[in-house]
Structure formats: C-alpha cells, structure tokens
Simulated scan of single mutants.
Amino acid sequence: MENKKKMAFNVVFLILVFAGTIYGVFHGEDLGEIARILKTVNLLWLIPGFICVIVFIWGESIIIYYMMRTLGIKRKKWTCFLFSSVGFFFSCITPSASGGQPAQIYYMKKEKIPIPVSTLVLMIVTITYKLVLVVIGVVVTFFGQGFIHKYLYDVRYVFYLGTGLNVFCVVTMLILVFHPVLARTILVKGMALLERMHLMKRKQSRLDRLNASMDQYRETAVYLKNHVKVLVNVFGITLFQRFALFTATWFVYKAFGLSGQSAWLIILLQSTISVSVDMLPLPGGMGISEKLFLVIFAPIFGTGLLLPGMILSRGLGYYTELLVSAVLTIVANFTIGKGKKVRENVGNL
C-alpha cells in the first residue's frame, strides 16, 4: 500500500512539473512559428543524436554486464540492457532519480541475482556516474573561470550549487565505502540526536537496517580495493557514456544548419547543465534544465532558433530517453525472470 501511494505521488508530481514546464516554456510564444522552424530541420542529423541516447542507456548495461562477470555472475547483455533501461525509466520519473536503483534491484532479484551483489554493482555505478559530473564541475570551476564568465555568468550560482551537491554526494558515498565504522558512528549519533529532539521515534529495526547497510558498504570497499583496474575501466566507460548523451545537443545544432561553434564547446555547455541539475529534486531536472538551456545556449543558437533548439535537445536528451526506457521497461516486466530457471553462479565478493 505504501509503495502504491509513493508511486501515485511520483506520477502526480511528474505531471505537475511537466505541466508547469510546458506552461513556462511556451507561454506567450508563437507556436506556429516554432512549428514552422522545426519543419526546416535536417532530420538526418537527428539520427546520430538518437543513437547517442541509445549508447547512453547501453553504456550502463555494459558496466553492469562487465561487473557481474567479475563477480562470477553470467547474464546476457540483453538482460543487462533491460536492467539499465529500468533504472533510467524510474530515474526519469522520480525526484532526484531516487527510484532507479530500487527498481533495478527488484528486477535483478527476479533474475536470481542476490541483493548484496546487485547493491554492490549499482553502488559503484552511482559513484562513477556522479564522479564524472564532479570532475567536470571541479575542472570548470577551478580552471575555467573565463569560460564561466563568458557562458555561465548569469547561472553561475546554480552551477556552483550543482557542483557542490555532487561533490558532497560522492564524498559521502566514499566515506560510507572506505570508512564504514566512522560512517556508522556518525549515522548512529545523528539518529540518537533526532530521537532526543523527538523528531524520530526510537526503533530497533532502523538500527538493524543500518547495520545491514554497513555490511554492504564494507563489501563494496573490499571489492574496490581488490579490483582497482575494474573501477578504472568502469569510470572510462561511464565517461564515454555520459559524453555520448551530451553530444546529442551538437547534432541538434547541426540539424538547424548552424556552424561556427565547435562540437567540444557545445558538448561542454550541455555537460554543465547536467552538473547543475543532477542533484536537484526534480524528475529529470525538468523545468530547470529548460531554463538553463535558454540562458546558456542563447549565444550559440541565437534568438530565433533558441527555443526550437531547446525543444529538440531536451526531446532527445530526456524525453526520448524516457520513451525508449519506458518501452524497454515494459519488455523487462514481461521477460525478466519469466524464462527458464536461471542458474546461480555467484563468486565471492
């Protein structure tokens, strides 16, 4: 019942944010003129943009497939692609992408993959996924002040906030992984403080869940220490995966017949939007992503093509991803765990 209420809340919240985004973007705009401009787009340039979205989803599936193999678990690449799609779909429709991993763990369990194993794999996926954004944010902040003043000046505080939140998230996760005793002490004392302030009721079950979580973090630490090369490879794949999605905006730029700006500049600008919105409590960064695009890409697309450019860029980078992952999630619902009995072949963590 609680899960159904939570899902209902997420759907209502998504609809409200989507409606607010549509109103904010198109209110007062000439829809006929926008439609006319979109009809002039060279659709051939959008095909590689669509492929970038598929590569983005596929990239995580390769990481899952690769890491499962290092743990002695053999699953088909197609099955891992479905795991990845499920994660992206639920991440797209839930605030702060909070629903992706629980859904993936659920479907992995249907494939007889132990929860500690799936949790370990997905935790490393999350760390490397966020780490790419941290690297981008930190490098731009410390070495790209000229770039910030030229392209991000009006939204620099949003960018700094996004960078800070991603750094905090990654540092917190690394502390949990490599210093689980310290992390447990902090969390236990924090819960005790909340209990004394009567903001939380004392429950032994909560402490038991915390201890179980710490066991998972310890297992992650052991894995990382013993598989450094795996972690480096995963980071490399993640870097390629994330920049594949950012590249879709460059193909949109070319679809309008524009030139004069380098692919690297457009890809980097798109990456700063992801850094800015990734940790914000909005499904897919909806609303804020559109606003940032209209500010950051104004000198790139120009006044006349800015809104149509945003429509196509977000259409590829978020809504196409949502649609493709939704279809594959339906496929996963009817195929995952429904075939012949899966053989367990789990190695030691």
Score class of each variant (00 low, 15 high):
residue 250 W to E: 11
residue 256 F to T: 07
residue 258 L to P: 10
residue 300 I to F: 00
residue 302 G to W: 12
residue 286 M to K: 05
residue 295 V to L: 00
residue 285 G to A: 06
residue 267 I to F: 12
residue 305 L to G: 12
residue 283 P to E: 01
residue 294 L to D: 08
residue 280 L to F: 13
residue 273 I to S: 05
residue 268 L to I: 08
residue 252 V to M: 14
residue 246 F to Y: 15
residue 290 E to K: 04
residue 246 F to H: 15
residue 247 T to I: 10
residue 301 F to C: 11
residue 250 W to S: 10
residue 290 E to G: 01
residue 271 S to F: 09
residue 305 L to M: 15
residue 299 P to Y: 03
residue 286 M to I: 07
residue 259 S to R: 02
residue 271 S to C: 04
residue 257 G to P: 08
residue 261 Q to L: 02
residue 252 V to N: 13
residue 286 M to H: 08
residue 281 P to S: 10
residue 261 Q to F: 13
residue 294 L to Q: 15
residue 291 K to R: 07
residue 254 K to I: 12
residue 271 S to I: 01
residue 300 I to L: 11
residue 252 V to G: 10
residue 298 A to L: 06
residue 266 I to G: 06
residue 271 S to Q: 06
residue 292 L to H: 01
residue 282 L to Y: 03
residue 293 F to G: 09
residue 283 P to I: 12
residue 261 Q to S: 11
residue 284 G to D: 02
residue 252 V to P: 02
residue 249 T to M: 14
residue 257 G to C: 09
residue 248 A to M: 13
residue 297 F to T: 03
residue 274 S to C: 13
residue 302 G to Q: 04
residue 288 I to F: 05
residue 267 I to D: 11
residue 305 L to P: 14
residue 302 G to E: 08
residue 290 E to D: 12
residue 278 D to M: 14
residue 305 L to N: 13
residue 284 G to W: 01
residue 282 L to I: 05
residue 251 F to M: 13
residue 266 I to F: 09
residue 295 V to R: 05
residue 261 Q to C: 00
residue 257 G to S: 04
residue 303 T to L: 12
residue 255 A to Q: 01
residue 273 I to T: 10
residue 253 Y to R: 07
residue 260 G to N: 02
residue 279 M to F: 08
residue 262 S to E: 09
residue 265 L to G: 05
residue 259 S to N: 05
residue 301 F to Y: 15
residue 269 L to R: 02
residue 270 Q to R: 02
residue 290 E to N: 02
residue 286 M to W: 00
residue 286 M to C: 05
residue 301 F to N: 06
residue 251 F to G: 03
residue 246 F to W: 14
residue 253 Y to W: 00
residue 293 F to P: 14
residue 304 G to Q: 13
residue 280 L to A: 08
residue 293 F to Y: 15
residue 288 I to L: 12
residue 283 P to F: 08
residue 259 S to K: 09
residue 253 Y to G: 11
residue 301 F to M: 13
residue 295 V to G: 02
residue 257 G to A: 10
residue 258 L to D: 07
residue 256 F to W: 12
residue 253 Y to L: 12
residue 258 L to H: 04
residue 298 A to E: 14
residue 269 L to E: 11
residue 292 L to E: 00
residue 301 F to A: 05
residue 253 Y to K: 08
residue 261 Q to K: 10
residue 291 K to G: 08
residue 281 P to W: 08
residue 302 G to N: 07
residue 280 L to E: 03
residue 293 F to N: 10
residue 291 K to F: 15
residue 295 V to M: 04
residue 246 F to K: 09
residue 248 A to F: 14
residue 302 G to H: 09
residue 277 V to R: 06
residue 257 G to L: 03
residue 304 G to P: 09
residue 275 V to K: 06
residue 250 W to I: 01
residue 263 A to I: 06
residue 276 S to Y: 07
residue 275 V to E: 01
residue 293 F to K: 04
residue 269 L to A: 03
residue 286 M to E: 01
residue 275 V to G: 06
residue 299 P to C: 07
residue 281 P to D: 14
residue 276 S to T: 12
residue 299 P to G: 04
residue 268 L to G: 00
residue 298 A to N: 04
residue 254 K to N: 09
residue 283 P to C: 06
residue 287 G to M: 03
residue 275 V to W: 06
residue 267 I to A: 08
residue 260 G to Q: 14
residue 284 G to R: 06
residue 255 A to G: 14
residue 248 A to V: 12
residue 286 M to A: 00
residue 269 L to K: 06
residue 298 A to M: 03
residue 256 F to N: 12
